[in-house]
Nucleic acid binder design. Structure first.
Lengths: 232, 232
DNA sequence: CGTCCTGTGTGACTGCAATCACCCCGCGTC
DNA sequence: GACGCGGGGTGATTGCAGTCACACAGGACG
């Protein structure tokens, strides 16, 4: 499929670029669709492309030596991934997999390099993204250190509460991860996640509204659990 | 204490810089000593300095919400830390603590920024270091996903085997982390680490030589354990 | 309509690592 | 020498989360 400059403009990182530049980049880029659970980027390979997510949802995942899946982060529409090789030309550290059918725009590594050279202001954005990634991973790592499993789940849930809702008493989490996805991120079993959720629902702290919406009815209580001020 | 250009030259990152530049940087930098378990960089603060380790050993550590310590990485002499704020001006994500009495050279963030602007080749090195950090964290995260604890310990041990010894049958690990430090990195208890080590020693796969040297006598067997090809 | 698949809910069982309690040893230092 | 302290070693106990097995609901799809 053909990449139009208009398509590229939908991505915050690129939206400020002059039309001529976008024409140029568009000509060298490509679009593709990825089915559910399709691999978008392979770990351990020099992927030579930066992926921009137009539609769908991706997850960075790794696998342990014994084949277990390890969830690392999500990629939402408008965001990009695979940028690490811009920094050292090394290989992609983790797999990126489509959680839902997705549409992905790929810009070749070289094109991206040229672009960053010409527009250093983009470089700052990409750097900040990597820095943010490090911060997130550090936080996630500290989550895994929690001995209390329920607390771990609550922390992750708290992370998913939109910033704007954190002070309110009710929060909406759209398209929440499945229990399995949460389990993989937190290094616990799917059943355990389900049990924690049951417990939260019984106490009317969260409730589900269809498959694509999770309502946190008592945000402050959730925070207390997350911070260990209360035990579940 | 006064920082001399000669001192700065001992750091690989800075060794190629012209003397005039080093004079300049030295004038704005400072040296300090850190006692064992002293905090070198504080998490959550805008530290505004890049720390170069001249002597000793540092560890990046985080704390879970409930106060548990989480070990992240080590800093060896000649290396630096605290560079993440160069990328986004954000705060330091984790604590950096001295494992042994250490000597640290601090270069202010602004000075460092100027330096990188004037010498983009340094920027590549710093970028590569951050990228490498991300890779390491990703790997460490996948370690934590291992359900078999003994395997986790063996993997960590395998990581500590110097690159040059990985193909040999005997490897030397200088200044190995204490059981406690390993336990913290792997999110398991100190006793469990001890028991795994006992098991490895009984099978004559590793042996200790004083406090500051650990000898891996059967490197290939250790690798098999690490890769899950054999069970301990 | 039936079928398939994914996601969720739940009970029973069990194994394994955390915890606790205590030991020893070596080292620095008062 | 006595002492404290950090580091390592070990047994007994226990609780908790993983695992297994199965049930059920809802959506997609022919």
């Amino acid at each position: 499929m053909v990449v139009t400059p208009q398509l590229l403009k939908t991505f915050p990182l690129l939206s400020g670029l002059p039309d001529a530049t976008l024409d140029d980049v568009a000509a060298q880029s490509s679009v593709r669709k990825a089915a559910r659970r399709a691999i978008v980027l392979n770990a351990g390979q020099n992927e030579e492309q930066i992926c921009f997510l137009f539609e769908g949802r991706l997850q960075g995942v790794d696998f342990t030596i014994d084949g277990r899946e390890v969830g690392l982060y999500f990629v939402e529409p408008g965001e990009f991934c695979g940028e690490l090789c811009l920094f050292d030309g090394g290989s992609q550290p983790e797999f990126v997999m489509a959680l839902t059918p997705s549409v992905i725009v790929s810009i070749p590594l070289n094109t991206m390099h040229e672009l960053l050279k010409k527009h250093p202001e983009l470089f700052a954005t990409v750097s900040a993204k990597v820095a943010g990634h490090v911060r997130k991973m550090t936080f996630q790592r500290s989550l895994l250190g929690l001995p209390n499993i329920a607390q771990r789940v609550c922390c992750q849930l708290w992370m998913l509460v939109p910033e704007k809702d954190k002070e309110k008493e009710e929060a909406h989490i759209r398209n929440p991860p499945t229990h399995m996805e949460i389990a993989i991120m937190l290094n616990i079993s799917r059943e355990t996640v389900t049990r924690v959720f049951q417990s939260l629902q019984n106490r009317q702290i969260v409730k589900r509204d269809g498959t694509s919406l999770l309502v946190v009815t008592q945000v402050s209580v959730l925070r207390d659990y997350a911070e260990g001020k209360q035990e579940l």
